Amino acid sequence: MKKQELWLLINTIIVLLVAVGFILIYSNAVVKTPEDRLFGRVVELTNEAVVETLPNTNSYAVVHLSYDAVTRSGETIGKVYNLKIKNGYNFSSDENFGEIELLVGIGKDNLINVEIITLKQSSWTVKGIQRFVYDRYQDVLIAQVENVPAYDAADPDAGATATDSTGAIRDLVKKAVQMHFGTFVDDPYIEFYGEDYILVEDTTFSGTLVTNKYTVEGQGTVYLVTGSGEYYDGNEASITLHVLLDSDGEILALLLPDDGYGHTKGFRSRNDAYLAEFIGLTIGQVEQVVNDNDDLTTGATNTKTLIEVLLRALVSEVTA
Results as ranks from 00 to 15, higher is better:
residue 148 V to E: 00
residue 197 Y to W: 10
residue 205 F to K: 02
residue 136 R to P: 02
residue 58 N to T: 11
residue 280 G to F: 07
residue 302 N to E: 14
residue 25 I to F: 13
residue 250 E to P: 02
residue 70 V to F: 05
residue 27 S to E: 14
residue 290 V to D: 13
residue 31 V to P: 06
residue 57 T to W: 02
residue 126 V to L: 12
residue 40 G to W: 04
residue 300 A to H: 04
residue 94 D to M: 15
residue 29 A to S: 14
residue 190 I to R: 12
residue 62 V to Q: 01
residue 46 T to S: 11
residue 39 F to I: 05
residue 32 K to R: 05
residue 153 A to R: 00
residue 108 K to T: 14
residue 209 L to P: 00
residue 153 A to D: 01
residue 192 F to R: 09
residue 297 T to L: 14
residue 28 N to S: 11
residue 197 Y to N: 10
residue 35 E to A: 12
residue 307 I to C: 01
residue 220 G to N: 14
residue 294 D to M: 15
residue 24 L to T: 12
residue 317 E to C: 10
residue 120 K to R: 03
residue 156 P to G: 02
residue 112 I to N: 02
residue 64 H to P: 03
residue 216 V to I: 15
residue 89 Y to L: 08
residue 134 Y to S: 09
residue 313 A to C: 00
residue 191 E to P: 07
residue 23 I to A: 11
residue 98 G to Q: 06
residue 38 L to P: 04
residue 67 Y to V: 13
residue 34 P to M: 09
residue 134 Y to D: 09
residue 112 I to W: 03
residue 246 D to N: 07
residue 94 D to S: 14
residue 318 V to F: 12
residue 303 T to S: 06
residue 84 K to S: 06
residue 263 H to V: 06
residue 2 K to M: 04
residue 7 W to S: 09
residue 214 Y to C: 11
residue 146 E to H: 06
residue 252 L to Y: 09
residue 121 Q to W: 00
residue 12 T to K: 11
residue 22 F to S: 13
residue 98 G to M: 08
residue 211 T to A: 08
residue 298 T to S: 11
residue 48 E to A: 13
residue 218 G to A: 15
residue 272 D to L: 01
residue 158 A to W: 01
residue 103 L to S: 12
residue 298 T to D: 05
residue 115 E to F: 08
residue 190 I to D: 10
residue 312 R to T: 06
residue 192 F to W: 14
residue 288 Q to I: 07
residue 238 S to E: 10
residue 284 G to E: 11
residue 87 N to P: 00
residue 18 V to F: 07
residue 186 D to K: 05
residue 186 D to E: 14
residue 306 L to H: 04
residue 64 H to Y: 08
residue 48 E to D: 10
residue 259 D to A: 05
residue 125 T to S: 11
